[in-house]
Design a protein around this nucleic acid. Structure first.
Ligand SMILES: NC(=O)c1ccc[n+]([C@@H]2O[C@H](COP(=O)([O-])OP(=O)(O)OC[C@H]3O[C@@H](n4cnc5c(N)ncnc54)[C@H](O)[C@@H]3O)[C@@H](O)[C@H]2O)c1
Ligand SMILES: NC(=O)c1ccc[n+]([C@@H]2O[C@H](COP(=O)([O-])OP(=O)(O)OC[C@H]3O[C@@H](n4cnc5c(N)ncnc54)[C@H](O)[C@@H]3O)[C@@H](O)[C@H]2O)c1
Lengths: 220, 220
DNA sequence: CGGCGTATGTTAAAATTTTCACATGGGTGA
DNA sequence: TCACCCATGTGAAAATTTTAACATACGCCG
């Protein structure tokens, strides 16, 4: 499909491409139309050689002696990251996290459309959050199938997460962002990323206790 | 301070220790008092050798032929992770993310006390979330000093994040969990972890576009 | 139009992290 | 008590990822 020079590269590269993309958007907004790997790295606390290597896995985007054309690189990264299209997403769990995600307009700007939110709490069903309806969890299967939903965000309590994930996958979802603090077991052709906020706090606690360990990247 | 056999180990080890801790809590609740690295790994999708190595950086916690005593390992991990004490935390930004974090009781159970939430929105000041008062952002300096706050959660818009971080550090905070999508520039003796939800979604989009890449860990 | 400064893309080396393989030692039961 | 089983802890190998170094190419300026 998309351009790619090498077939193997670090998993962390994709994460960094996303950072590059955002930083470039910022530069673009500020009217800057050329940037060197050195300058971009300074902004993100990432070594310039790392940036050049990451980009080199996908193509030759820069001009020697000159750096990178911001708009051009943005376009390429958009393509590489799969952001040149719309993604239909459902959120399961209309609680705090689910609501936060539904209210975050930057997702929509990036092409992630929150088609609906599902919950099993009668009191929430029928309302809407930021324009997305809250629907009965029991209808999720039909909805996902009919609307060809590919991505889902799980924001239900840990105890319910595995069952929700199973139902989602059965309905046809193939990518899941999971906020529940459990290791969801899934078929290997389903992509699942977990966001674990407790772990982050605990890691901070560890590093507070052992101040001799100075090992941080701005990203993680 | 705490026990540690080797002085160098992967950064990812700490993250995993946190997963082990949570999985062990679960086992403990269910009345299981011994576990092998193999069984624990199965629960978390982590190789048993990885678990044994991670633990070996800090001590000999298991019994050969037997596995690990759940309660004992929990106690040790609690100590290692710095969870055997209370942490006073402030949240900056009483928006969606700030509210979600303040409402999450598991943090309190783990020893993270949300001492206060700060905001510059007149309409929010004076209210409280889950027992924590929302105070004027202008008072944050005094509050942090007087209450010896060490940790902070930044949940303000990206544009304000750097200024907030600077103010926090100036007031004495030395650990920050940052939700704003910017690389905050900090003195190297301040620990900062960022949670970047946009990046996670974008990474999912990438892997949806390139289904040939099957490379997932349950954690990330 | 050709030399010079500059920043890329790449190759090779270094560093880090994971995985393997197995010797080691604790517990159990005969 | 002793032999046997089992899962740990570890040292060495493999795999992955980052960093360094530099030859290469581009554009500008004189
Ligand atoms: N809030 C935080 O800051 C935070 C931090 C770390 C982890 N998490 C995790 O994120 C997840 C969501 O947290 P939250 O704070 O939004 O929880 P919440 O309690 O605010 O919301 C959960 C929602 O899920 C709904 N729900 C429960 N079971 C369901 C089911 N089977 N099907 C459909 N809907 C169901 C509930 O009605 C509720 O609306 C939880 O797993 C939690 O552990 C949250
Ligand atoms: N909501 C999400 O799902 C989501 C997803 C990705 C990233 N984020 C990031 O997390 C951060 C918080 O997001 P949110 O959705 O909670 O935003 P929000 O708009 O709901 O809340 C922001 C809060 O910060 C307060 N605030 C603004 N400037 C301030 C300042 N200088 N000092 C003190 N308070 C100030 C506002 O009054 C508001 O209450 C943002 O940086 C956002 O980009 C949020």
């Amino acid at each position: 499909m998309a351009r790619r020079k090498k077939y193997k590269f670090p998993k962390t590269t994709i994460e960094r491409l996303s950072y590059y993309f955002r930083a470039l958007e910022d530069l673009s907004k500020r009217g800057i139309d050329t940037v060197s790997s050195e300058a971009l790295g300074g902004k993100l606390n990432i070594k310039s050689s790392q940036i050049r290597k990451d980009l080199s896995y996908f193509g030759d985007f820069g001009k020697r002696g000159m750096g990178y054309d911001v708009k051009y690189l943005l376009k390429e990264l958009k393509y590489i990251l799969g952001l040149d299209r719309e993604w239909s997403v459902v959120i399961v769990g209309a609680g705090h996290i689910g609501a936060a995600m539904a209210n975050y307009d930057s997702f929509r700007k990036r092409g992630f459309n929150i088609a609906a939110i599902f919950d099993n709490d009668e009191k929430k069903i029928g309302k809407e959050i930021n324009g997305s309806p809250i629907l009965p969890y029991d209808n999720i299967d039909d909805f996902v199938k009919q609307n060809k939903i590919e991505m889902a965000i799980i924001a239900v309590p840990a105890a319910a997460a595995q069952a929700v994930a199973d139902k989602l996958v059965e309905s046809g979802v193939t990518a899941i962002l999971n906020f529940a603090p459990v290791a969801v077991q899934l078929d290997e052709n389903v992509r699942c990323l977990s966001v674990d906020l407790t772990t982050k706090l605990e890691a901070l606690a560890y590093y507070m206790s052992y101040s001799q360990d100075k090992l941080w990247k701005i990203y993680s």
